[in-house]
Design a protein around this nucleic acid. Structure first.
Lengths: 197, 197
DNA sequence: GTCTATACTTAGATAGAC
DNA sequence: GTCTATCTAAGTATAGAC
């Protein structure tokens, strides 16, 4: 698969460089020229690997989305609603915490989101699946809005600079507790989650 | 002040046009050329009224921010903590609901935020003041994160397309209730809010 | 004071040579 | 797989017409 061909190397170096520059200057503030200069190649060389700037953006974001997908699959395999909710929430929070620099980047420069939506069948699918996992198939209005606020709040606040210097475990714990509280589920301390609904 | 000079008219038409195009194509997807064409003038004419594209963006966003500022002032004038919190929260929710199309725009295209931050002494000040109003001067970590999640969640979800077809009053009620619940304050039904803390 | 004509710089993107 | 050259469009800027 990933034999160390020159292209593979350039491609991965390119993605690493792009992520670094994106984080420093934002996506909009990073030109292909900058990326090319940093790599010691020309813009055209960059274009050989990615047909458009959006493709680079997507490739940078892909790992987090893939992982979220896997976590949602896992949650859907749970047999009780309570376990589904816990799995979905903890998966969501885990991704937020682990990829928070990426999320911060996206939040600060979300022309990105549109690019991602176009490619990955839409982030909308992610959000819709997540909502169903957490609120069930036919939530009333209050529940639906509540879940939307929760998802948006956890993601945005998780990536926010105010929380940037918290260690992963602390942030994860707090976000998870907030999520459970918002879903009307009791705090759990260490033990396995119980079926509740 | 605002005598009907040609410039004033062009300026306000320009802002209206910009808002419309921004909403349709996003800020990044709207060029000065498009705005100029729509107005039947040249790019340079646009440039006469606003020295940069960011200035247009700021001017479009300004009313909402000004109003939020006023609401925070009002909240700070309240004598009890409980009344401060209620005022701040309801002011915040009101702005979100009334300007939700603007918020949706910003969320979908947040290169904007940086532009606004640069001009209006930073959105950071808004967020910091709001946090202090809602969480008090020296909140513990859990409270601080909780308020951050709430602010981010209400704002983002309020502007989200899922809630787009709710009428203002319904959305306001739900967001306000979610906010109060997250702050650990009892629901109030009709009556004036009581001092609680 | 308001706008047009024009031009400069940089960005994203493409074609074709090596 | 990478480079040179080139194109279009964006944002910015100025000189000058009215």
């Amino acid at each position: 698969m990933s034999a160390g061909t020159a292209a593979d190397d350039t491609r991965s170096r390119l993605l690493a460089t792009a992520l670094r520059l994106f984080s420093k200057h934002g996506v909009g503030g990073t030109s292909l020229q900058m990326i090319a200069d940093e790599l010691g190649v020309t813009k055209a060389a960059v274009y050989y690997h990615f047909k458009t700037k959006d493709e680079i953006t997507e490739a940078v974001a892909a790992p987090a989305l893939q992982e979220l997908l896997a976590r949602m699959d896992e949650a859907e395999r749970q047999r009780t609603r309570g376990a589904q909710i816990d799995q979905a929430l903890s998966g969501f929070v885990d991704i937020i915490v682990r990829y928070r620099s990426l999320i911060a980047l996206f939040n600060s420069d979300p022309g990105i989101m549109r690019a991602i939506e176009r490619s990955l069948d839409g982030v909308e699918n992610f959000a819709a699946r997540m909502r169903t996992l957490l609120a069930g198939p036919d939530p009333d209005l209050a529940t639906a809005i509540n879940v939307n606020v929760m998802l948006a709040g956890l993601a945005l606040a998780g990536g926010a600079p105010e929380q940037a210097d918290l260690d992963d475990e602390t942030l994860r714990t707090h976000l998870f507790d907030i999520g459970r509280r918002m879903l009307g589920r009791p705090k759990r301390r260490g033990a396995r989650a119980e079926d509740k609904s």
